[in-house]
Write a protein that binds this DNA or RNA. Structure first.
Lengths: 164, 164
DNA sequence: GGAGTGATACTCGGATATCTGGTGTCCGAGTTTTCGCGG
DNA sequence: CCGCGAAAACTCGGACACCAGATATCCGAGTATCACTCC
């Protein structure tokens, strides 16, 4: 069970976009270069984020991406689900009904599989933890703990590439 | 991010093995037939469970699998990790260090990536939930809620195939 | 009849194919800019 | 000098190869059983 690498990219990108002025945009090329990753592949994930309303895409020259809503309203869960999809990692294939020993009458398996419930319960805990953290908090935390020099360099580098 | 189907099979098998007498065994062939799944592929996962100490394998005729320790000492997390591996789903590839804007001095990135921390925190919540549930509770819960007829049929079917 | 011994049948274990989904890439659609031209 | 228009350049969006890991399988190693033989 491994998570797509795109999730890491997506969160970093959204966090960066949370630091620029609200109406400014950054093109995918800049985001990819900043993180040292493939531009075309990153674009694939940015598209998913835009489709989910987390980002807003602006076409044409001087175009790029900006946040689709305020950073405090974007949870980590939103980003993860936009990239990975909303279906749960554990999928119950109802093997309790596949063997020679099972009930045939309709409604016999009305109650959900206990194992399914247990696994889903764990995923709910995971989702709650992700939902409790939003991009705004994350960006502020990064701003407070990052090396001031790195912060200044980043701000300058991004400032030269930001679009209004 | 999808979990291996083998996890579902493994949990069901361990739950079944928790219902037979402590010293009895069930061969993989029986477990596979009971759940209506491929025997050879199930064997692959049972092997992993045995390697983790969750199951104990007995070779030869009258052989098979039994629990490696009491059911109450086997958590769902143990089973999941035995099948899926212990590495976390989210893997930080430290893309913060890959772009043009990064610090070069050693120790500059001593503090872990905040995004990495956030994702790991969610996984810890997931693991705690899985660790809180053990096979013994699960088996008892199943026994209490299952249809009595199904329970009797299963007990008879398994009783005919159990090895002492 | 009992014990020893060999073959046997059954079990698990590791190495080997196949296939789906993540990874990576390319080219096309759309829009804003910009440069040139005419008034 | 200003307004208009067409071309251009840059952006994102969807469709197409590639590869790793999950899926599925087969054959070999090991052991308890069982039958046969000998005492």
């Amino acid at each position: 069970m491994k998570m797509s690498e795109g999730v890491e990219w997506a969160i970093h990108c959204v966090a960066i976009l949370a630091t620029i002025p609200p109406d400014a945009t950054l093109p995918a090329k800049t985001l990819a270069e900043y993180h040292g990753v493939s531009e075309t592949y990153l674009l694939k994930h940015l598209k998913s984020l835009a489709a989910a309303g987390i980002l807003q895409s602006v076409p044409g020259p001087k175009g790029g991406y900006r946040l689709g809503r305020e950073a405090d309203a974007i949870s980590l869960l939103d980003v993860v689900e936009a990239v990975e999809g909303k279906e749960s990692a554990f999928r119950c294939s109802e093997i309790r009904q596949r063997g020679p020993i099972c009930l045939t009458e309709p409604g016999a398996y009305r109650l959900p599989c206990a194992i399914h419930v247990a696994m889903l319960q764990a995923e709910v805990a995971w989702k709650k933890s992700l939902q409790a953290q939003n991009i705004g908090d994350l960006a502020r935390h990064l701003k407070d703990t990052l090396d001031p020099r790195l912060l200044a360099d980043s701000a300058e580098w991004l400032g030269n590439r930001v679009r209004i």
